[in-house]
Write a protein that binds this DNA or RNA. Sequence first.
DNA 1: GCCATTAATTGTTTTAAATCAATTATTTTT
DNA 2: AAAAATAATTGATTTAAAACAATTAATGGC
Lengths: 233, 233
Amino acid sequence: MINIKSEKCFDCTACNERSPLFHYLTKDELAIMNAGRFEVHFDAGETIVKQGTIANHIMVITSGIAKLFLEGIDRRNLILDLVLPWKLFGGPGLFNDMRYHYSVSALTATSACFIAADHVRQVIRSNPDFAESILRHCNKNSAANFDRLISLTQKQMPGRLADTLIYLTNDIFQKNRFTLPLSRLELGEMSNMTKESVTRILKEFEAEKIITVEGKTIEILNFEVLKEISVRG
Amino acid sequence: MINIKSEKCFDCTACNERSPLFHYLTKDELAIMNAGRFEVHFDAGETIVKQGTIANHIMVITSGIAKLFLEGIDRRNLILDLVLPWKLFGGPGLFNDMRYHYSVSALTATSACFIAADHVRQVIRSNPDFAESILRHCNKNSAANFDRLISLTQKQMPGRLADTLIYLTNDIFQKNRFTLPLSRLELGEMSNMTKESVTRILKEFEAEKIITVEGKTIEILNFEVLKEISVRG
DNA sequence: GCCATTAATTGTTTTAAATCAATTATTTTT
DNA sequence: AAAAATAATTGATTTAAAACAATTAATGGC
């Protein structure tokens, strides 16, 4: 469903080719990362990391797709990201309280690689380029969360759902037609609205010829109008 | 109004005593930070940094208090933090797009110290302890933003205002009775509600003997109930 | 100390979006 | 393939909170 480039991850040299964060690492540093590294397969729906547990590892997905979400009040979730292969996650507790601050669960069959947080720390200390790129990564996430804060608190439903559709088109699928690995409830958890409202707004967008919807397949017909709806709020 | 420990900032050796982030720095590194450093005084209401402009500096307030806020849609702001002396800010654009991702403006007469981003970068690269503490700082902010996302999207007004009052009590004033440097509108910008709603909920809390309100002075009478309201949502 | 301006309060109305309820489609399981 | 379970749609109702409007209080400038 998603364009996945690799099947298996044998050692961190592979990541060095695929994850931009690992470009800066020397052979020795890759060996440190690789020590104690392990890969685990998850079925769709399984939890990869659970919010609140001790953050001993940093993870990267090698195949499949996962959702990264906050567990909020009364079992209500807020999905922050869909996680594709080679995107590092699990960081926010690092050097801090050493706990995971979000949960991640597999949307499709997924393999994830677990790297010891201690080893990441060691390499951050030895390699300024790596430290800098980790900091850049952290800062990018902060900026994205600022945007999300504004979207979710100041825009009304069409604006919020437009933001979600734009994110899916640009950052996840990179094409105008895609089949979602998400339910209407989960679209709602990305856009802070109920599943019923998702249905209604999707229908509205369809009536305005901005998108077509057939079940879980969505096609963006008019990206510009979608952007306008996003900007207007 | 706020307990401010220092009057003037002569060089970064002073920060080494006051800002925990600077503890790890050697004499040479403090000298790097100090080069080109400058301090500016702001009257209440003045903008210290403006969202969207080029982030050439990292700032620290040496006296006074400021608000740090996102500029959202239709001139609507979202206040993220009140900034006290010795707390570093301006980081999120660092190594990233080199822009400020929020605005900061003085609530009282305020002095702020500007340190060149290049110099901070240089020291991050040379001192792993400093790099680690900056990363810790960044991760703490991420965690706080996750909490804020849940508070602002999933709690209703009493829960959100309770969160704001708890933040003011614990993190800013560190006592149960304080005089706000904020208007009702600004309390609303911290809690994502209108100024009218702030008035009403404060009155509600007062009727329930949780707080007393006399103009801008608030006293917390029952912190436990406030916490319950926060947890319940 | 008085006037002008801004901030806060209070009451009323409107509205966006949730909740509730019922039905229809899809998947999954057997 | 049929039955069961889950997901999606659709409509009606309720509700939290904004918007609007009017008054009162507080602040700042002269």
